[in-house]
């Protein structure tokens, strides 16, 4: 370890020790020093992750590796109780359910819940070099089931329903040109703007679809339509980008509030 990094380490360690003691002394609660330690730990990890913005460093590496291990175990614990104990055990048998203190779910076909167990064990066969090919069966089951599921459902939601909603009238409250010009105004709910908007939607959808056309060269009028399509796509992406930017900034404000309020208690 280099001298500078030793110094940095010593500084950080003493600062956090100080924070622990101070937080412990002024904390109210049954176990003030535990609370003080936990808040300091949380602050340390927060800063460790933020230090990544400067450059990769040992503190970030520590926080990152800890996070990976802890979260993997967390997912496993949760998965065990919600899926194995919550979903599988209650179907297996009433004796096993009673042991796990869950309600046995009656069913005439519960015997079939042996199949996912078998599939699960086949999946674990991957670890054996000889029987590894067996693990393709459960994968085939999962992929097949969900492909079938997606096939019809997306055809309905993203295809048929979209045709339905693209069919909009281009002329609204049309009473001839005379009426149109005499009542013309630029208000958002006015006839002109509404008609223009519907036209943009219609043209936008058509040109957007043309942009995604693969089997025809994008030249001539087709190419121009495709160009309009990508313009509209880009405008949309910009709008969505801007919208998210504003949302994310509030998150940062939240994290800074934690550091200054809960840990350092500078602001209240």
């Amino acid at each position: 370890m280099k001298k500078t990094s030793m110094v940095v380490f010593a500084t950080i360690a003493s600062l956090f020790l100080l924070s622990w003691i101070v937080k412990g002394m002024f904390s109210e609660g049954s176990s003030p020093y535990l609370d003080g330690f936990l808040v300091t730990l949380a602050a340390f990890l927060t800063l460790a992750i933020m230090s990544f913005l400067y450059k990769d460093n040992p503190y970030y590496k520590f926080a990152e590796h800890l996070f990976v291990g802890v979260s993997a175990a967390y997912a496993m614990c949760l998965g065990f109780w919600s899926t194995i104990v919550g979903n599988l055990i209650p179907r297996l048998s009433s004796t096993v359910s009673d042991f796990f203190q869950v309600n046995y779910i009656e069913g005439d076909y519960n015997i079939f819940f042996v199949i996912p167990i078998i599939f699960g064990i086949l999946l674990l066969m991957r670890l054996s070099p000889k029987a590894g090919w067996l693990s393709r069966w459960p994968l085939a089951f999962i992929v097949g089931t969900t492909a079938g599921l997606n096939f019809v459902r997306y055809l309905r939601s993203d295809f048929i329903n979209q045709i339905n909603s693209t069919i909009i009238p281009l002329l609204i409250d049309w009473n001839g040109f005379g009426d149109f010009f005499s009542n013309m105004n630029f208000s958002a709910t006015g006839q002109l703007v509404m008609m223009f908007s519907n036209l943009v939607i219609f043209v936008g959808v058509v040109c957007g679809i043309i942009y995604f056309y693969f089997s025809k060269e994008h030249t001539g009028w087709f190419g121009r339509a495709s160009k309009v399509g990508i313009w509209i796509l880009m405008i949309t992406f910009g709008a969505s980008f801007g919208y998210t930017v504003m949302g994310r900034i509030s998150l940062l404000v939240g994290r800074i509030t934690f550091l200054f309020k809960d840990w350092l208690e500078i602001i209240s």
Partner: peptide
């Protein structure tokens, strides 16, 4: 496999990139 937690995964992939 890294982990089944969105940001832990991101942290690890970021580490790999750097």
């Amino acid at each position: 496999f890294v982990t089944q937690s969105q940001f832990a995964y991101v942290a690890a992939v970021n580490g790999i990139m750097l």
